[in-house]
């Protein structure tokens, strides 16, 4: 069985079929991409995987277990972490605290231990802090740790969200348009970051409009249009697939051209 296996997922909003029976697999250690024109249902598929939306039909299997419809924090505990297209940070908290919230998912100390400040709780807290700093180091934000997250520049916010996701020690990270709003240099360093993440043994699944980035880092692509899968394969196969070109024809978004 595959590492992540999406089976025949479907979701309607009102009368609109956002996702209509999508299936695909992601192998462990891969960098996979989910692409398609605006409104193709990419983010909905992500939300179905991460538990933010419950599917009407279909299954999500991860690591030999059925995780369909679990609440998001349960999914994180199973090893899938995510970022958001619209960047959702805890703006009033420090950069470090943002990452610590991600790390907290793995901590065990209860309320009483926090009340008493037991040695075990303190040790755990110290370790979480070290790991959070390491995650910040990886995304290049270590020197920003003490600042309020709300004060970061756009590109830094994207990277902080990735650090927060990594802090939960996921086996799969799901990145929703990580290059959105980034300039060319930032996008290039993002590509390097995605590769570094994979080198650490974390599988990556991303949605992206920036075709340059997708073709550069992804090894396998799934193409959605109108809520259904129209193609799947390596970047080269996708590039030469006539159906894909058709799907993108007439789409105004220059990022998709």
């Amino acid at each position: 069985m595959s590492f992540l296996s999406v089976r025949d997922l479907a979701k309607r909003f009102g009368g609109v079929k956002a996702v209509a029976g999508v299936s695909f697999d992601v192998e462990e250690g891969a960098i996979a991409g989910l692409i398609g024109p605006n409104g193709a249902g990419k983010t909905t598929v992500f939300n179905l995987i991460t538990g933010n939306t419950r599917p009407d039909q279909g299954r999500v299997l991860f690591n030999d277990a059925d995780v369909t419809g679990l609440r998001p924090h349960r999914i994180v505990a199973r090893g899938i972490a995510r970022t958001f297209q619209s960047i959702r940070l805890f703006g009033g908290m420090s950069v470090l605290s943002n990452v610590l919230v991600g790390a907290d998912a793995r901590l065990k100390s209860g309320l009483l231990a926090s009340f008493l400040g037991t040695p075990g709780q303190r040790r755990e807290e110290r370790r979480a802090r070290e790991e959070a700093l390491a995650a910040l180091e990886l995304v290049g934000l270590a020197d920003r740790a003490a600042l309020p997250a709300g004060s970061l520049a756009h590109g830094e916010r994207r990277r902080l969200e990735i650090a927060r996701a990594l802090a939960s020690h996921p086996r799969l990270v799901v990145l929703d348009e990580p290059a959105g709003g980034l300039n060319e240099a930032e996008t290039a360093s993002l590509a390097a970051l995605v590769r570094r993440i994979r080198e650490r043994g974390v599988t990556v699944l991303l949605i992206e409009h920036d075709m340059g980035l997708v073709m550069d880092v992804c090894e396998r692509l799934v193409v959605l249009e109108n809520g259904t899968k129209i193609a799947e394969g390596t970047p080269d196969e996708i590039r030469s697939d006539p159906r894909v070109g058709e799907a993108y024809l007439g789409v105004e978004d220059p990022a998709c051209a």
Partner: peptide, 22 residues
């Protein structure tokens, strides 16, 4: 403590908090 951080995360953005494992 981690509990306090989780509370603030809930206050700041509940969806993001849940998505970060809270």
């Amino acid at each position: 403590s981690r509990f306090g951080r989780q509370l603030r995360a809930v206050r700041e953005d509940e969806v993001a908090a849940e998505g970060s494992g809270v």
